[in-house]
Computed example of a mutant assay.
Amino acid sequence: MTIDEVVAVTRFSRAKIYRLVQKGDFPAQRKIGASARWVASEVHDWMARQPSTSRRQAPVKRRIKMPKSIRRKMGM
């Protein structure tokens, strides 16, 4: 798996993945020539061992209603 694939699967940033690898808390990448790849089964096994709270869902964006006085000034 490439770093982009690991980011997509874990929902962690690149920096967080590399930090976890450095601490020994995430499977290390393997060098293949000039590139680095993760073994998919190691990443999936690591994810299966993590508590479900570590894979948070993205926060829901909420619209904030603008006060009428401001909307009038903006011509809305």
Rank of each mutant, 00 (worst) to 15 (best):
Ile3Met: 12
Asp4Leu: 06
Glu5Cys: 04
Glu5Gly: 00
Val7Asp: 00
Val7His: 00
Ala8His: 03
Ala8Gly: 07
Ala8Phe: 05
Ala8Glu: 03
Thr10Asn: 01
Thr10His: 03
Arg11Val: 01
Phe12Ala: 02
Ser13Glu: 00
Ser13Gly: 13
Ser13Arg: 12
Ala15Trp: 12
Ala15Gln: 09
Lys16Ile: 01
Ile17Asn: 05
Ile17Cys: 03
Ile17Arg: 00
Arg19Asp: 09
Leu20Lys: 09
Gln22Tyr: 05
Gln22Met: 06
Lys23Val: 07
Lys23Gln: 09
Asp25Ser: 15
Phe26Ile: 10
Phe26Tyr: 02
Phe26His: 06
Pro27Asn: 02
Ala28Asp: 12
Gln29Asp: 14
Arg30Tyr: 09
Arg30His: 12
Arg30Trp: 08
Lys31Val: 05
Lys31Asn: 15
Lys31Pro: 13
Ile32Thr: 04
Gly33Asn: 07
Gly33Glu: 05
Gly33Pro: 15
Ser35Val: 15
Ser35Thr: 10
Arg37Ser: 07
Trp38Glu: 09
Trp38Met: 10
Trp38Pro: 05
Glu42Ala: 07
Glu42Met: 08
Glu42Asp: 13
Asp45Ile: 14
Trp46His: 15
Met47Thr: 15
Gln50Ile: 08
Gln50Asn: 06
Gln50Ala: 06
Pro51Asp: 11
Pro51Lys: 14
Ser52Phe: 14
Thr53Met: 05
Ser54Thr: 13
Arg56Glu: 03
Gln57Trp: 10
Gln57Arg: 10
Ala58Ile: 04
Ala58Thr: 07
Val60Glu: 02
Val60Lys: 00
Val60Ala: 00
Val60Trp: 01
Lys61Asn: 04
Arg62Pro: 03
Arg62Gly: 01
Arg63Leu: 04
Arg63Gly: 00
Arg63Ala: 00
Ile64Trp: 04
Lys65Ala: 02
Pro67Ala: 11
Pro67Arg: 10
Lys68Thr: 13
Ser69Asp: 03
Ser69Arg: 02
Ile70Val: 11
Ile70Pro: 09
Arg71Asn: 05
Arg71Lys: 07
Arg72Asp: 08
Lys73Gly: 06
Met74Phe: 06
Met76Ile: 13
